[in-house]
Design a protein around this nucleic acid. Structure first.
Length: 408
RNA sequence: GGAUGGUUUCCCGAGUGGCCAAAGGGGACAGACUGUAAAUCUGCUGGCAACGCCUUCGGUGGUUCGAAUCCACCACCAUCCA
């Protein structure tokens, strides 16, 4: 199976400019391609992860990846697919975020010996001369055309600042620069980047009279059409300090039935034949598939050791096993006790299972709190210090949030 | 620059002087049912030392016994005009 066939079979490809040419380049390892990452946060998330995986697949097939960090474009903010303006980032934030990105990326992509390059568009964007740029590049863009671009549609109603309007031009300029500097002939990106990417191929055609290609990756949407990789409290991050390996594992363990196979194809490196077998699975059997998905992804992002730990902790908690060795733990000290005891609500707060005491009280009243498997509905319940020494106790709030409490 | 309309709790959105911690919906959370899924039903959704108290309705002042509601100024957003 060729690389192209595999990408297609996995459903990774959304749109392409020239299928035949791209197929040819990619299959034969002749593509030098780039993917841009704007430093909008201090960690990569699942969307970035998909892009990195694609990068890796192509790299393995002999193509040369360029990871572009948006030190310059991050100063502007991409309006694509957004209903309101992004918060403007300070230069310091951007630099910090770039440093974080770099670190995380090098875990996935091999940058040694020029097998891949990492560049920062701040290097050329920040020194641009306004009038010169307008004459050199601006002349090639039609405002009429830009306004009809899909990426601005949502913003035409809510308002679009001139700053953000220029994002497309910056991104196009990136491609143009990379084409000249590194012979970069292809750009990949999320499907919401399509218009921006076309801007680049157009610019190269007009300025250099050369062909360059663009291809977008399917956006990871759930069966309801919403972006995946988001939780109530924000994105699912790749940084273990922002999203713990266990939470990361659980996120995938809990995807809807209807999304498992799709995630498997889009996000893992499991062979297609194996995934096809799972497609036949039904009902509770899908739980097995979810476990595999969660393990695979945690393994890719956090390594084998963390993946095993997360899996064991999950099995212990939901499978009724007694092994609580790998559970997230809260350690208490003497200062947490008054008269050798601590009340249950405080315990919930200390373990960060609830945000406020009121929330804790509510959880208890509604029968959502158990201590070592025993349901407690008394709001005034008090736990003695002795009960928490030794192996400690497992405090659980709801079905999926829990913490082992132990006295140090 | 001018005119008009707007800014309400996580989101949408009611409320136009006391009965307002603020209707309704969504989401989130908890319970039942399940498979750590979905659907459904129920509860719940500012905080706290909790039959009470404190903080909240863009910001700052003011009127009033009493303000999310009235007044003034400021900020931001939308539409139309220039």
């Amino acid at each position: 199976m060729t690389l192209w066939e595999e990408l297609t079979a996995r459903g990774l490809i959304a749109q392409v400019t020239d299928e035949e040419e791209i197929k040819e380049l990619v299959n034969n390892g002749k593509a030098t391609f780039y993917i841009g990452f704007d430093p909008t946060a201090d960690s990569l998330h699942v969307g970035h992860f998909m892009a990195l995986c694609l990068m890796k697949r192509l790299q393995m097939a002999g193509n040369k990846p360029i990871a572009l960090l948006g030190g310059g474009t991050g100063m502007i903010g991409d309006p694509s697919g957004r209903t309101d303006m992004r918060k403007m980032l300070t230069k310091e934030d951007i630099q910090h975020n770039i440093d974080c990105f770099k670190q995380q990326m090098s875990r996935f992509i091999d940058f040694s010996d020029g097998k891949a390059i990492m560049v920062n568009n701040a290097d050329w964007l920040l020194n641009l001369n306004y009038v010169e740029l307008l004459r050199e590049v601006g002349a090639h863009f039609s405002v009429n055309r830009m306004l009809t671009a899909e990426c601005y549609k949502q913003r035409m109603e809510r308002g679009l600042s001139f700053l953000e309007f220029n994002y497309m031009i910056m991104q196009s300029y990136d491609f143009y620069m990379l084409y000249q500097k590194y012979g970069c002939n292809m750009q990949f990106g999320g499907d919401d980047q399509w218009s921006n990417m076309l801007g680049g191929t157009e610019l190269i055609r007009r300025k250099l009279n050369k062909d360059a290609y663009a291809m977008t990756i399917t956006l990871l949407l759930n069966s309801e059409g919403k972006k995946m990789g988001k939780t109530a409290s924000g994105a699912v991050w790749l940084d273990p300090n922002k999203t713990s390996p266990f939470d990361f594992y659980q996120y995938w363990r809990n995807v809807d039935d209807s999304d498992v196979i799709k995630c498997m194809k889009l996000l893992t490196f499991l062979p297609l034949e194996q995934i096809q077998e799972m497609e036949a699975w039904e009902g509770s059997q899908l739980n097995k598939a979810k476990e595999i998905l969660a393990y695979e992804l945690t393994n890719l992002v956090h390594g084998e050791e963390e993946a095993k730990k997360a899996q064991e902790a999950a099995r212990a908690l939901f499978g009724g096993g007694a092994d609580s060795a790998n559970m997230p733990t809260t350690e208490l000290t003497d200062a947490d006790f008054t008269d050798g005891a601590v009340d249950l609500i405080s315990l919930l707060v200390k373990a960060e299972l609830v945000g406020t005491r009121s929330e804790g009280r509510r959880a208890i009243e509604q029968g959502g709190v158990t201590l070592d498997g025993e349901k407690i509905m008394d709001v005034k319940y008090v736990v003695a210090k002795e009960a928490l020494t030794g192996d400690g106790k497992v405090l659980k709030r709801g079905k999926k949030k829990f913490n082992k409490i132990i006295v140090k």
